[in-house]
Each structure stands twice: as structure tokens, then as C-alpha cells.
Nucleic acid binder design. Structure first.
Lengths: 185, 185
DNA sequence: TCATAAAAGCAAATTATTTGCGTTAATAGT
DNA sequence: ACTATTAACGCAAATAATTTGCTTTTATGA
């Protein structure tokens, strides 16, 4: 079976997964990624390495699994009064979180895994957040660009620059937002 | 020392690097990436595993090194008559190459390595190609958007979609190009 | 309550990685 | 041209990670 689908909350599988994830998070907090190994994680989580190998396949998949969990947004985009202000605030925070050391590592983990399902999930999280901002704007009676256009013109450039070298600063992010908002109106 | 800087063409280091790269390319052509190991590469290249470990550190770095080599553009963007046509033709080919199976794997290899230098190089290759198109357009007396704007509005969306789930089709690519060309004029 | 099946533990076998040390080959100075 | 120097390589032993067969545990549903 695939990992994590249909785990009964109190089941053994769920407990193992929780303790393994926890062990990974703690180890990543206290040492560099190159030093984290499966036997180490297993030891800290109180399971045998073979359990991890059988469930996740390899370290890369496990790290991707943990990373996508941590990349799940934990709150709604803040309401800054208008669609443009909302998007601006959200995009700046997104850029900052994703370009931070841990953020970059999590993205890398997600993209490095062979299974692309995790990467899709991340994009889906982002799409949902943008969707919320769009809905709110429309409920206010404002014009707001299509979600896919925001993905193309705001999210993608931010992510591209984070992945391929330079970190986008706040001014550039604001610029991206004004451009897409200008085009929509 | 860092790999590949200042290698005399006929030196031993250069020969080792060439045979290792060749071995990697051949192995990747005949089996899946999960099956390629350093001892296997070493055997095929006629070197000992420890040589590879010492020079590249781990498989990830070696794969990234090979991938960035293969991602280097081997020709100039074709001249299609106008800046817009040039960019359209180039972007479509870029999207196609990068979203192909081997293309995606090479990108993944580059991004998965801990050193970000390789990823920067890839973005630089792309920037140069776009720069050539821009220069050609300006030499013709045409208006052409800033290279960074093309990176943001054409390259980044293509790459984002390839990495995070869906492959952009030709129509979408043309759409991205018309948008950035429209804004410039 | 019991039968079943999925997941985990254990341990042995295999495979990959690291490391110390001797050797080779390119480079620079005389 | 010859030799001293040094970086890179080969070899092999030691360590660490991964795989695998088999047994045991633990949810789940009849």
C-alpha cells in the first residue's frame, strides 16, 4: 500500500509513522542533512531500520514525506483589506519562508524524491492559498486574476529564483504582484 | 579542490572525469536511476570507487555534475525572423526538452545536489540563450523585453509546472510568450 | 473469539562507503 | 633534461548501510 492513506488514528502504523516523522524533524534540527541516516532515525524513533526501508524505500522518500507535511500551510492568508494587499502580503511571506534555509531544504527534499506526488501536493497547497485570496476578493466584488495566472506570474518566478540561484527580495515580489494585478484590471 | 576547474586537457584528472561521465551517461541510458550505483559506474569507467567518492563525494553530486553538462545548450536559438517568433520557437523547444523524461531527470539531479552551483549554471545557460534572442531582436531594431522579465514570465512558469506536476503544452507556452511580448511593446 | 492479513522485529547476508597507505603521474624549479 | 613536489589514483581493510527471509505482533472483520 501507499504510505499514509487510510491510517486509523490510533493504529500501529500511524504510531510508527508519527514517531519516525518526529525523529526526522528532531534530527534535522540538530544536525546537517548529510549526517542523517536511516539507522539513526530508526534508533531515535524506536523502530528497526528495516521497517523504514520497507515503508519508505529510501531516505530521499522519507525526507520528502516529512517535508511535504511541514510545507502544508498552517493558516489562512491574512486579510489585508484588498485582493492586491492580500496577495502582496501572502507572496512576501511565501517568498521569505521558502527561501529560508529550512524552506529551501524542504523544497529540495520534495523535488529530489522519485515520486512526483509530493511535489504536486505542494503546488496544490499553494494553489489553494491563492484560491482563498481570490475568492475573498471576488466576494468583496473586486476583480482578481485567474489562479493559474497568479501561479505563472507570481509563484513560479519566486520559486524559480529560489531554486536556481538568487533569492527574490521583497521589492521584486511586490513588483510581480503589481504586474499580475495590473493585467487583471 | 573543486571538480573540473583548471583541468589540463590531456591530464590524468581530465581522462578520469571523461570516462566517469561517459560511464554515467551510458548506464543512465540502459537502466533506471535507482539501479545506478557508484561501484557500478566505477567498474564501467575503469576506476576504483574510492576515486569517485573522493572526487565527487556521493552519487548525487556526480549525477548533478553529469546533468549540468548535458543541459548545456549545444546550439544557438534558431532565427525565426522576429524576436517574438524566435522566443516562441525557443520556448517551445525548451519546454519540450525539459519536460521529457530525461530532461526532468537531469533537472532533478541538478536540484537534488547539495551544492547549488550547478543549478545556478543551468539558469545561466538559459539566461544566455534568452540574451542572444534579445540581442538579435535589438539589432533588428525591435523592442524586446528585459531578459529578467522573460525569465520571470516565460522560463519560470514552464519550469515550475514541469517540476511541480503538470507539463505545459505548446499552447500555454505560446500564451506566456505573447503575454511578455505584449507587455514590452 | 478466532481467523486473516498487514506491518513490525530480528538477524544474517549483501552491498556501499570510508579510510590509511603505497604508487603513479603531472608540474614547477633548477 | 632532471629531479623534487604534490595532487590524484589504486588497493584493501574496516565500517556502515541496505536487503531479505523468517518469525512475531497487532489490527480488523467474520
Amino acid at each position: 500500500m501507499t504510505v499514509k492513506e487510510n491510517l486509523r488514528p490510533g493504529g500501529r502504523s500511524a504510531r510508527v509513522q508519527a514517531s519516525v516523522h518526529k525523529a526526522v524533524r528532531e534530527l534535522l534540527a540538530e544536525m546537517s542533512r548529510a549526517e542523517v541516516t536511516i539507522p539513526l532515525i530508526a534508533g531515535k524513533a524506536g523502530v528497526t531500520p528495516s521497517t523504514i526501508y520497507r515503508r519508505w524505500g529510501d531516505l530521499q522518500q522519507l525526507l520528502a514525506d516529512v517535508a511535504v507535511d511541514r510545507l502544508r500551510p498552517d493558516m489562512q492568508p491574512v486579510d489585508a483589506g484588498s485582493g492586491k494587499a492580500d496577495l502582496e502580503a501572502w507572496a512576501e511571506q511565501y517568498a521569505e519562508e521558502m527561501s529560508s534555509g529550512p524552506g529551501r531544504e524542504m523544497i529540495r527534499d520534495v523535488l529530489a524524491a522519485q515520486a512526483s506526488a509530493n511535489a504536486c501536493k505542494c503546488a496544490e497547497f499553494t494553489r489553494q492559498q491563492v484560491g482563498l485570496i481570490a475568492e475573498r476578493a471576488k466576494a468583496r466584488g473586486e476583480a482578481f486574476p485567474d489562479v493559474e495566472r497568479v501561479m505563472d506570474q507570481v509563484v513560479a518566478p519566486i520559486m524559480y529564483r529560489i531554486l536556481f540561484g538568487d533569492v527574490p527580495d521583497a521589492a521584486r515580489v511586490r513588483d510581480l504582484v503589481s504586474r499580475v494585478m495590473g493585467a487583471a484590471l
